[in-house]
Simulated scan of single mutants.
Amino acid sequence: MPRALLRLVASALAAWTVADRAWAQGPETIRVATFNASLNRPEPGGLVRDLGSTDDPQARAVAEVIRRVRPDVLLVNEFDFDPEGRAADLFRRNYLESPRGATEPLRYEFAYVPEVNTGVPSGADLDSDGRVVVEPGSRGYGNDAIGYGEFPGQYGMVVYSRFPIEEEGVRSFREVLWKDMPGALLPTREDGSPWYSPEALAVLRLSSKTHVDVPIRIGDSELHLLASHPTPPAFDGPERRNARRNHDEIRLWADYLSGGPAASYLVPGGQAPEPPERFVILGDLNADPLDGSSLPGAIDRLLDHPRVDASFVPTGAGAAEAARLQGGINAEHRGDPSRDTADFDDDRVGNLRVDYVLPSRGLTVSGGGVFWPTAGPTADSDHRLVFLDVDWP
């Protein structure tokens, strides 16, 4: 990204209006955000390499957006995983905390980098092309991996927080097998036979990245972050294996929150985990309520869940403007364009609402938005940052 474009980003940030909020504000209001920042690279170690300096233009643009909105708790999707968490530390030190930039530095004392299923070899022919690709670095390998990724850890995630992360209390459902979900929407062929072989089903996990419950300690209580990034409902054939998996990945959180028998498959032995009292579901869930290619009702499992309060819908003025100016299939969409959070191909997909911050009932939302300025780019990503301000009891 050239310097001129970086200046344009800074100008857009300065022009974008959001209620001014001091970083030193007390814990009465918590700003929680999710951002699919597209900080992924085509080869292992690429993100660590690029974040090793303060000059990566994409990382600088992403950091400017985050520093402008200044969330207290942030989930970043599409952030390549490395076992030592070096990329997370480098981004924090060289970009969020750097004195360079148009906005004040931002410091997160705590970070959590979960393991993910992307790029983990399955040893099975998951895309049914007649071969099992075991050498990383190609689309064929990604298609046969547990979750799509051309190397282990591609398209991972990181959680940043200014409040303590209680890692000993983290619950991960990354290893839950898709076949173990009662009533799973497993794909079939045109003749009705199973798409996946028994050998494939024995290893195929439901979560394409991970589903993780991360408790954050705020004063004397906890806020649980239910973080995930379901596979997009695309890149498949008439069997719609990715659309079906997307539906069931979203359903996993609905089952978890319902508890009891509905959640018994989530842990070995069938003992359902106790769902959290206060939580926020957040991430790029790749499902729009009205438009796009997700299965009908997929995201409604969360929007209509009795424990979720989805009454406040974040919006962005730039989202509505983009849909109007870009035209294409956007003109056919049924959803309110101001609620869009991602800018996709205007001929086939259009702009959609796919990124969510959904609080539990009992938490009061005092504000929120979609960071989508009406002029200039926001960052080198097809998604926009989404945030909510929650009044903490």
Rank of each mutant, 00 (worst) to 15 (best):
F151I: 02
S293D: 14
R131E: 15
P57T: 07
P314D: 04
D213L: 13
L385D: 07
L282T: 02
Y112K: 04
P105R: 10
D355C: 07
E239Q: 15
V390R: 01
S193K: 14
P164W: 11
Y155L: 07
E175T: 14
G85C: 10
E135F: 10
V370P: 05
A331E: 15
G283F: 09
E135Q: 13
A243L: 06
S53R: 09
F371C: 13
G45P: 06
A24Y: 03
G26F: 12
A200I: 03
H224G: 05
E64G: 12
M181F: 13
G367Y: 12
P296A: 13
A272T: 06
P44M: 11
L285F: 15
G130K: 02
R93P: 00
H305F: 11
G169L: 15
G368K: 08
A37Y: 11
S38W: 15
H305P: 06
D80S: 03
V48M: 02
R139A: 14
A227R: 01
T118E: 04
F91A: 06
S161P: 00
S11P: 00
I30G: 05
S264R: 13
S366I: 14
P230C: 04
W392S: 04
D127W: 09
F110A: 09
R334C: 05
R174T: 12
D340M: 02
R348E: 13
A184C: 03
W253C: 02
R70L: 10
R68W: 12
L385P: 13
P232C: 05
G367I: 08
F344T: 00
S122C: 12
L206Y: 08
H333P: 00
G270M: 06
N242L: 02
N77R: 02
V370H: 10
P187F: 13
G45R: 01
V357C: 14
E239A: 14
S264L: 13
P83I: 01
L6M: 11
P44R: 03
P121Q: 06
G327Y: 13
D129C: 08
G52I: 07
G26A: 14
T17S: 14
V280E: 02
V158L: 08
Y112A: 05
A63F: 12
A319Y: 03
E321K: 15
G140K: 02
E28R: 14
E332R: 14
Q326W: 10
D345T: 04
A33L: 10
P57E: 05
P121M: 10
E222V: 09
V9S: 00
I218C: 08
S98Q: 07
